[in-house]
Structure formats: structure tokens, C-alpha cells
Design a binder for these strands. Sequence first.
DNA 1: TACTAGCACTCATAATTAACGAGTGCTAAT
DNA 2: ATTAGCACTCGTTAATTATGAGTGCTAGTA
Lengths: 340, 340
Amino acid sequence: MLTERQLLILRAIIDDYIQTAQPVGSRTLSKRDDLSFSSATIRNDMADLEDMGLIEKPHTSAGRIPSEVGYRYYVDHLVEKRIIDERETFRLEERLKESAKESELLIRQAADLLSDLTNYTTVALGPNSQMEKLARVDFMPIDERRGVVLIVTDQGHVEHRTVVFESRVAPDIIEETIRLLNDRLVGTPLGQLKIRIGEEVAKLQLAQRQQYDNMMQLIQSTVGIQTPSSLYLGGKKNIFNQPEFQTIDTLRPFLEWIDEQERLTHWLESLPNREIYVSIGSENGIVALQNCSVITSDYTLDGKTFGTIAMIGPTRMNYRHGVQMMGQIIEALRRTKLEE
Amino acid sequence: MLTERQLLILRAIIDDYIQTAQPVGSRTLSKRDDLSFSSATIRNDMADLEDMGLIEKPHTSAGRIPSEVGYRYYVDHLVEKRIIDERETFRLEERLKESAKESELLIRQAADLLSDLTNYTTVALGPNSQMEKLARVDFMPIDERRGVVLIVTDQGHVEHRTVVFESRVAPDIIEETIRLLNDRLVGTPLGQLKIRIGEEVAKLQLAQRQQYDNMMQLIQSTVGIQTPSSLYLGGKKNIFNQPEFQTIDTLRPFLEWIDEQERLTHWLESLPNREIYVSIGSENGIVALQNCSVITSDYTLDGKTFGTIAMIGPTRMNYRHGVQMMGQIIEALRRTKLEE
DNA sequence: TACTAGCACTCATAATTAACGAGTGCTAAT
DNA sequence: ATTAGCACTCGTTAATTATGAGTGCTAGTA
């Protein structure tokens, strides 16, 4: 159990260290207005805090820095989540509205806003389109041997793909195939189209059909349509300003990791569904991020669950500000409606 | 005028420096098999080369390093362009074929191959779709108030966009508008759609029409379709292995510059149209790339002019290998046909 | 004349040492 | 329970010294 004063000291150490990135000494602390004790008294308490594992010293004659356990305590006990500053939220809403025409834009804007607000790097992931259901398939001929397949999802997303046939295709064959696809696949989540069509085709014994090759080509093209995951990175260059990332050895793993879109997407998707979650230092289990903390949150848009947004900074990040800004932005997003 | 031996020495210095990134001394050179002169003799020639501005010394007691003028001489006189190794080119063709289904993929693959081959960073730009001409506009309804506009270009590119109308739209109004767009805009380069439609709409005096708002909405959506420039970056992390980019001060400008897609695209587009062009050090005029050299080339695909590809490395780059690999890849691309 | 051996000189780099000072832990006094 | 005082630690910085790779120049040789 921490005494009142120890709590004050812990808090002061972390606040100070967050700002300066330098170990904090007892004398520095005793000069603060909110700590009217002598440096010796503070030293005693610091020794206790160190015994409890909340702070540590880089070496004998340096001040103390918070340990991961210390940050954890700080975040759990001393950071208030969900304090909404109405004026600020309103301002964010206004900025978001400018981009409310397309969800892509909105995601970018949210990520950019959050990184501007905090000076950390942000990653935002849009809705997982693999879960959206097929609402409609259509086809539009370009010339005798080419055309465009279109798919529309229940969320109103559209994707297309050009198909090139081996030979000339009769319009009625195309029409029939499209009808078939609509009959059999509407309502199927995009992620399962390929599996689903296997079953259906097997049932139908299409092999006997005229123009089997062309039909199959059309079908394969349709189920092979890629829905790009809408991932957006904001404020990547902020990392260059962090004192703990001033050497190649620390910078390189971070940059290489963040540039790997695929992995980043999987990571975001694998995060537990929560409102605002803080992962401190090595807690995240990613080697490249062992000196980083991450604040993540799922967000909703116009009430509907939409995606995930994350903020990545050094372990010595400003948790209070970060958590608050994250709260603001997801609240602003919640209140924003897509224009459609 | 350079003597035979001075040429040999210049070449040896550059070859050596390219490999080691260390200033080259006279004794080191005299130990080479192809330079059977005493170090003193070499020193004399080095002094001459320095007077001519081809090499320089970082400080009195170091060896020599090539100057930008020296590299220029080397590239212009000692690097053979267009030496095609048929077997290697064939191998590249094979690898490219795997991705010949879509031009996007092909561009990625070409950039990746080139960066794997050279260990430098590559940037590839696809065709400038602003120059492609509109071949066709079409519309597909989703529900009463929404639908998808499609445009097809003369190169077979397809783009789409969702349109949301203010109110219910009669199918014949849509049909008419689409017909109008096709009549008036087919053949117009995508980059000029907006200007063009202004003129046409003015002529037509649509204002009197029923459902004017919805028609305009459809028209605006169509001409507002963005054609994403297909830019692809390969081997970005190669830069981390270059000894001249081991400090934040050199690394940061490079990474910040390369991450700015927009600027990168403009830069590539602004390059002079040539087959293989080498820009050495500060020649490129870009501050962030003042210590980089760039090998650029336009490339053709299946005979048609297609885009630009660039290779970026430190000024101390392996020009011979770089130029040769660039030659191979554009030759391989020239021989590749898109599957359509 | 063209080349080479030899030598004094230069200067970045690495290693060593010394001075500094921020910070600590402990003890004794209040 | 708190604080003043003091000896001690140890990372950082500056100053000093060696080291050696490389140079330019001169004088000698083929």
C-alpha cells in the first residue's frame, strides 16, 4: 500500500520523466511546489517505491525512472479515462465533418487529427470488409472479350475487377452466370466467398455446360476480388522527435515494423475489443515495440462498430493526455454521421 | 586528358570506394594486381587527378574519395549501358510473368525485383492515367437513391464511385445523363474532364431540366472520380544497411522525403524522358537526396510507353551494376505482355 | 625522362587519465 | 517522523597522449 506522499512522489517522478526523458532526482522533486518535503525524506520514500518495483535507477548516481510496473500503476490509478471536454470534442467533430463523405477519408482524418493532437504515431483500421456480406454482383461488358465485375456489399461498399475471357462470350451466358452468383452467394461474408463457391459449383455440375471455361473464369474473378483493408498511418515522422529513438538501433526496428502493412493490419485486428486499452512497454509482446506503449480503442461511427485506432509512442509517453485525446476522438467519431 | 594509368587509378579508387566506403590510399592501390606501380607513382597521379577535380581527400592524412565530378566521369566513360545478359533477362521475364495479370502487380514486382537485385531503394510509377482518354461511362443502381458510376479508359482501366442522390431518381433521367456524358466526354483525357464538362453543361442549358440537381450530382461524381496514381516503393529498408545513413541526421531527411507519395510522384513525372539516366549526388537538386544518386529510366510494356522507374542509393553507389540491372529490367519489361 | 625508395610531416581515431557533479544511502540531530 | 549533513558512487566531459594510415617532397636509379 502506498502512503499519500509516496503516491504524490510516484506521480511527480512520472510526470517529470515524461516531460524531460531524464532520470529524476530527489532534489529536483523537493523543489516542486506540490512536494514541500526535504530531499532526504523524498529519498526515503523513493527507496520504498523502488523496493516495490515501481521505479528504478539506471545506475547508482542517477535519479529514478519509472518502471513498467510504475507506469501500469500510474495508468490504472492516476489517469482518468473518459473525461470529455465538450468544446474540444465539438471542434474535433467539425474537423471530422469535412471528411465525412467517404469512410476512407474519415479514417485518414481521424488518424491525422489524433497524431497532430498528441505528436505520436497513429494507426487506424477501417471496418473489416471480410465480414461484410455480399449484396449484389453485376457485370458490365467493355468489349467482346472483356468486362467488369462489380460487387456491392451490405454496407454499400463497391469493388470491381476487370475480366478477360479466353474467347468471345455470349451475353446470355454471362447473364446466367451472374444470376447464378447472385442466387447462390448473396448474404455470404466476403471472406468466405471462395469456400462457398466451391460447394455450390460442385452441386451444380457445371462441367457439362457450354462455355464452361468462360463461366468459371467469371466466377473465379468475382470471388477473387480483393477488398483492400483500409489502413491508415498518421504522423509517422513524429517518432523522429522522440529522444529514445535517436539511434538507428532503436529507430530501425520501429520503422521496419510500422511499414509492414500486412502485419500491422493483423495486429490491429487481433487486439481485444475494448473501449480504451493501454499496453505498456513490453506488455504488447512485439519485439520492435518493446520500448513503446500503445493506446488502442475500437471506435464506432454513427453508432455502428467500425474499426480500431491505435496510438504508438515511447513507453515514456504522456498517458494522461494520450488517453484523453483518444477518448475525445472516439467520442467525436461516435457523433459523426457518414453522409449517405 | 587522362593518361592510361590515371584512368586505371581513377577507376580503381572508385571501385574500391564503392565497396568499402573508406577513403582509398596509394599503398592499398599499389597492392592491386592491375596496378603494378609503386605507391609513390600512384601518389603523383592521384595528385594530378585531384587537381583535375576528379577525386578529393576528406583530410590531409586520409586516402582519396571520388568527387561528384569523378563519379560523373566514371559513369560517362567507364560504365557500359545496355549490356544485356540474355539468360538473366530471361530469368527476370519469367519472374515478371507471374505478375502479368494486372499492371499494378507488374509494377510492384518490377520495383521489388530491381531492389532485390541491387539492394537499393526503388520507386516505380505506372502510366499517368490523367492522360488516358475516357472510353465509356456507365451506371449501375444499388437502391432507389444510390448507385455506382463506372468509367473505363482507352487503356482498359476501370474506376468506380458510389453516388448518393438527394432524392429518388427516375431511371430514364439517369439513362439520359449517362448518354449525355458518353456523347460529350468520350475521348477526353481524364485530367481534363472537369474543364470539359463545364463547357458542355454551359452549352446545354440544363438548368431548365427536371431533376436538375440529381443530374448534376451524377455528372459531378463522374468527373470527380480519382484515378489513383500507381506508385510503388520497393526495398525501402535497404537504406538502413548503407553506412552513410547510419545517423538520424542523414536518415531522417531521406525517409521523410521518400514517404511523401505526392511529391515523389511529381518528381518522377517531372524527370526527362530518357532510356537510362544517372543523376549523381547533388545533381538532382533535392536537398534530402544530396548524398544520393539516382538511376532513372522510362520503361515500356509490350512496346507501349508505360511509366518511370527509379533506383535510389548513396552517391557511392555501384553504378555499373545499377545501370546494368536497370537495363535488364526495362528490357524484360519491354518483352513482357500484359495478359489481356 | 619516368619511376621509385625514403623520410618528415599531418591529422583523425582510440585509449588513458583527471576533474566534475548530480545523486544516493546512511547517520545523527531535531 | 522529518531533516541536515556527509562520504561515496559513477556516468559524463575535457584534456592528454599514443598510434598509424596516408601524404608530399626530395633524391636516387633504370
